[in-house]
């Protein structure tokens, strides 16, 4: 997994609450057997006409979105389906950080395993970010700080293990495999 330490980038703002993973990537794109190029399907039904031509006003179709690495989303982001394709699509589009007032449980796990940092902030910080589309925000995972467009700094909480894995690019499969003996002993004992 690609490590993540500091991300400094303009933010893309999608303030809608409860954006479910069916919006992040509609089910018809889940028939793939790999995870290549799913960024093209990110928010497909909001982003393209039914004939596939882009809707020019949609935020992800604006030129500045192509370089953005931080998505500011509404409350309860990523609810619904467990499809990891949602995380793959977000990462493939170029985002490394998703900021919201809350993030759904399964999406949070999927994001962390794909080098995406979900950052949960208070409503007042969120309101500032929502009011500043395109402004630059700095996320420092090592310090667990967020530097807002007005220069003020806020701290955020992140699970210690998730932080360790992201900072060092540790993948959990290798970690679990290293506990093979403990797992075998547990099976033996039951």
């Amino acid at each position: 997994m690609e490590p993540l330490r500091i991300v400094e980038s303009p933010v893309v703002v999608m303030p809608r609450d409860n954006m479910d993973t069916d919006q992040v990537i509609p089910a018809r794109f889940l028939k793939v057997t790999d995870k290549v190029g799913l960024g093209a399907a990110l928010f497909a039904d909001w982003r393209y006409h039914s004939d596939g031509t882009p809707l020019p006003d949609f935020v992800l179709n604006r030129p500045e979105a192509s370089k953005a690495q931080i998505l500011v989303a509404g409350d309860n982001f990523g609810c619904g389906s467990s499809r990891e394709h949602a995380a793959w699509a977000i990462r493939d589009f170029g985002f490394r950080v998703v900021i919201s007032t809350s993030v759904a449980d399964i999406f949070r796990n999927n994001a962390l395993r794909n080098g995406i940092l979900p950052v949960v902030v208070d409503p007042d910080v969120h309101a500032k970010l929502v009011a500043s589309p395109g402004a630059t925000v700095r996320v420092d995972l090592e310090q667990m700080t967020l530097t807002l467009p007005d220069g003020t700094q806020r701290t955020f909480a992140v699970d210690a293990f998730a932080r360790h894995c992201l900072l060092n690019g540790v993948d959990e499969m290798g970690y679990l495999l290293a506990h093979k003996d403990a797992i075998a002993a547990f099976e033996e004992k039951r």
């Binding site: 467990s82 499809r83 990891e84 995380a87 399964i106 796990n109 999927n110 395993r113 794909n114 959990e172 499969m173 679990l176 495999l177 506990h179 093979k180 797992i183």
Partner: peptide
């Protein structure tokens, strides 16, 4: 669970 976790369970 997500697909990464499907892999974890298959393997361990």
């Amino acid at each position: 669970i997500g697909t990464s976790e499907v892999g974890h369970v298959l393997a361990t």
